[in-house]
Simulated assay, not measured.
Amino acid sequence: MLFNYLSKPNTFKCFYASINLIFFVILGFHPTLNAQNQDSKEKDLKSTFSSDLINIETSIGQVFRYTTTLQNNTSEDQVYQLTTKVPEGWRGIFKTKGKQVTSIKVDHGKREIINLELFPSYEAKPDKYKVSVIAKSLKESLTLNLEAVVSGSYELKISTPSGRLSEKITEGDQEEILLTIKNTGSLNLNDIELNSKTPPKWSAVFKPSKIDRLSPGETKNITAILTVPDKTIAGDYMSTFTAKNANSKDEATFRISVVTSLASGVLGALIILTAIIVVYILIRKFGRR
């Protein structure tokens, strides 16, 4: 009779589906099987450590800044120790919420944003450098591999051939000051402009007024023609000459000592002598009365 009942196509399908349902319900409520299944899921959960950028390029002397995300996918809160493996002479620091840290607590199922700042060695040459960032807790160790590309530096220096930054000039005259502009970086410098900051009514003209290109280690001479107006009071004045382009800037401050001209000195002496003679005559004249 059961055979006749199951022999019907639709009835057999329903019976098979019922058996499967009962089997899965038993498995779901079986303590041992359920625990094993839960343990298996927990073993598959692994935290992640990532960065929005893994390769950053900048010039020598600049700081590399990365924004990383640490995701705790385990079932427990974790405290991660943060360390870096960097080239010799380099230094890395971690910051979160504006504070410098060496470790961080991440609640289970949560994530934290960690900012990494890499300071390259002063002797770092243009090249690609490998950096490993490690977040380690009692349960796991996560490694993030980054790249820091040092592309070179933009630097220039303005000075004089002798290094002396002082001049003497007569009021009302012009003085030619020889300047040296040197590319002390490792990259080409283009479109270098010359500017000056002088006392009121003074003027400075550069020849040439612009340097189109300066290769690394190359030096070019510039003549600054400084004009001091008439009747400038004798004394020391400061004038600043600046060389700059879009990537670098340097300035040199000169002490300019202004002296009076010979004609002004003679005229001043004559005025003083005349005053003395007048006083002497007045004394002789009125002193006899």
Score class of each variant (00 low, 15 high):
residue 240 T to N: 03
residue 278 V to E: 04
residue 250 D to I: 06
residue 94 F to W: 02
residue 278 V to C: 03
residue 140 E to T: 03
residue 107 D to V: 14
residue 79 V to E: 08
residue 202 W to C: 10
residue 114 I to Q: 01
residue 104 I to G: 05
residue 282 L to M: 14
residue 134 I to P: 09
residue 57 E to I: 10
residue 181 I to K: 05
residue 169 I to C: 01
residue 28 G to F: 13
residue 221 N to D: 05
residue 102 T to S: 14
residue 243 A to I: 03
residue 175 E to D: 10
residue 266 V to H: 07
residue 196 S to F: 06
residue 72 N to H: 00
residue 107 D to K: 15
residue 171 E to G: 04
residue 275 A to I: 03
residue 19 I to F: 14
residue 112 E to F: 11
residue 52 D to E: 11
residue 269 A to Q: 02
residue 217 G to S: 15
residue 72 N to V: 05
residue 282 L to F: 15
residue 222 I to V: 01
residue 117 E to Y: 12
residue 34 N to S: 10
residue 261 S to L: 03
residue 133 V to Y: 01
residue 113 I to R: 11
residue 200 P to Y: 07
residue 96 T to N: 10
residue 180 T to L: 08
residue 6 L to H: 11
residue 11 T to H: 14
residue 120 P to S: 09
residue 121 S to N: 09
residue 255 R to V: 14
residue 170 T to S: 15
residue 29 F to N: 08
residue 48 T to Y: 05
residue 52 D to Q: 06
residue 241 F to Y: 06
residue 265 G to C: 07
residue 15 F to N: 08
residue 113 I to F: 12
residue 230 D to R: 07
residue 232 T to Y: 01
residue 56 I to D: 00
residue 32 T to R: 07
residue 262 L to D: 12
residue 58 T to W: 04
residue 160 T to I: 01
residue 73 N to S: 13
residue 160 T to S: 00
residue 246 A to L: 12
residue 181 I to S: 04
residue 184 T to W: 02
residue 158 I to L: 01
residue 264 S to C: 10
residue 193 E to S: 00
residue 63 V to F: 08
residue 255 R to A: 12
residue 262 L to F: 13
residue 260 T to E: 14
residue 284 R to G: 08
residue 91 R to C: 13
residue 126 P to D: 07
residue 159 S to A: 11
residue 150 V to C: 02
residue 8 K to G: 11
residue 2 L to C: 00
residue 240 T to W: 04
residue 222 I to N: 04
residue 261 S to N: 03
residue 138 L to K: 14
residue 263 A to L: 12
residue 39 D to R: 06
residue 130 K to I: 03
residue 128 K to I: 13
residue 170 T to V: 15
residue 247 N to M: 11
residue 180 T to A: 06
residue 16 Y to E: 14
residue 231 K to G: 00
residue 83 T to N: 12
residue 88 E to C: 00
residue 175 E to L: 09
residue 96 T to M: 11
residue 285 K to A: 04
residue 95 K to V: 02
residue 88 E to Y: 09
residue 12 F to C: 11
residue 288 R to P: 12
residue 206 F to L: 03
residue 103 S to D: 13
residue 85 K to P: 12
residue 98 G to E: 15
residue 253 T to E: 12
residue 204 A to G: 06
residue 25 V to P: 11
residue 169 I to E: 05
residue 188 N to D: 12
residue 183 N to Y: 00
residue 81 Q to T: 13
residue 199 P to A: 15
residue 184 T to E: 04
residue 58 T to M: 10
residue 196 S to A: 15
residue 6 L to G: 07
residue 251 E to N: 12
residue 77 D to G: 00
residue 234 A to D: 08
residue 85 K to M: 15
residue 145 N to D: 14
residue 125 K to Y: 02
residue 62 Q to R: 10
residue 275 A to L: 01
residue 105 K to V: 06
residue 162 S to Y: 05
residue 152 G to A: 11
residue 77 D to T: 02
residue 167 E to Y: 04
residue 149 V to A: 03
residue 87 P to V: 10
residue 224 A to S: 12
residue 180 T to G: 07
residue 153 S to I: 00
residue 139 K to D: 14
residue 53 L to W: 14
residue 91 R to L: 13
residue 70 L to K: 01
residue 28 G to K: 14
residue 211 I to D: 07
residue 140 E to W: 03
residue 233 I to F: 15
residue 261 S to I: 06
residue 148 A to C: 11
residue 266 V to K: 10
residue 6 L to A: 01
